[in-house]
Amino acid sequence: MNSGFLDGTLVALALFAIGVYGLLARHNIIKTIMSFGIVQAAIILFFLNINYTLTLSPPIGDGSNMADPFPQALMITAIVIGVAVTAVGLTMFMSLYHHYGSTNWVKIQKMRKERK
């Protein structure tokens, strides 16, 4: 990953920025959930790049010159949480769609105000 100009951390931060753009500028709820996926991928990439160089081997069994296992262990947990979060988000979105029939944050907010 650390070869030349484009190293993993940089790619991770670029992905993070793309995800954040999606959260900031998109009115579509599905795209919001997708942006969360992108942000999560960015963070996982960021963590895996900590203390990493190309010559390291995977931290399995006995061996020398292994990669740092700690961030990898953390990221397994983060991936599991990410799956749960996406599932809950999509479920809630489905239920919201049944009530309002729209995928747009702004339109739903307007409808909600009118129904009050």
Partner: peptide, 11 residues
Amino acid sequence: SQSIYDGIIYL
């Protein structure tokens, strides 16, 4: 329906 919107915003 109102609380679903509130819940999703919170989440």
